[in-house]
């Protein structure tokens, strides 16, 4: 079962980080980053299956592909931002974590604003 591999790998990484933190705290953060990347690469195949399913459903629901791709981009951005911010928090750099989150929020807003404007245009057009 793949879940045992992932959980087992996560637990080993956690134990390593805990041990290293008392000996060489600067190495602990590297282990943490590496563990995050490896776990992500282990689940990426499953993630692509979920995304394909959502894409297929959106096609059936006659959803605009622009909208769907924007939502995917936003989810991806949110994940990367959360990942980076949590790593920064783990390293004790709360202020950097907040700045990463701020950057993520601004990028998400940049992606959302064209849709918001288009929707506003549409609402204005259909108003009698």
């Amino acid at each position: 079962m793949e879940v045992f591999q992932i959980v087992g790998f996560g637990l080993i990484a956690t134990i390593l980080v805990v041990i290293l933190r008392s000996v060489r705290s600067d190495f602990a953060i590297y282990i943490s980053i590496l563990a995050g990347v490896i776990i992500f690469s282990m689940i990426i195949q499953h993630l692509s299956y979920i995304i394909d399913t959502i894409r297929d459903l959106s096609r059936r629901a006659n959803l605009e592909i622009t909208y769907f791709s924007t939502i995917l981009k936003i989810i991806g951005t949110a994940y990367i931002v959360e990942f980076g911010a949590q790593l920064s928090r783990d390293a004790g750099e709360n202020s950097i974590a907040m700045k990463i989150e701020l950057a993520g929020k601004i990028i998400i807003m940049t992606l959302a604003i064209p849709i918001l404007l288009s929707l506003m245009d549409l609402i204005v057009k259909i108003m009698p």
Partner: peptide, 30 residues
């Protein structure tokens, strides 16, 4: 159904509100 799936995939945290904001547009548009 799609929104429920997206909601499950969404990361929990401060970004959630922003994703909900865009998903709200999608509901209005549909």
């Amino acid at each position: 159904v799609i929104i429920t799936l997206v909601d499950l995939v969404m990361p929990k945290g401060s970004m959630r509100r922003y994703i909900n904001f865009v998903v709200g547009f999608l509901i209005i548009f549909t």
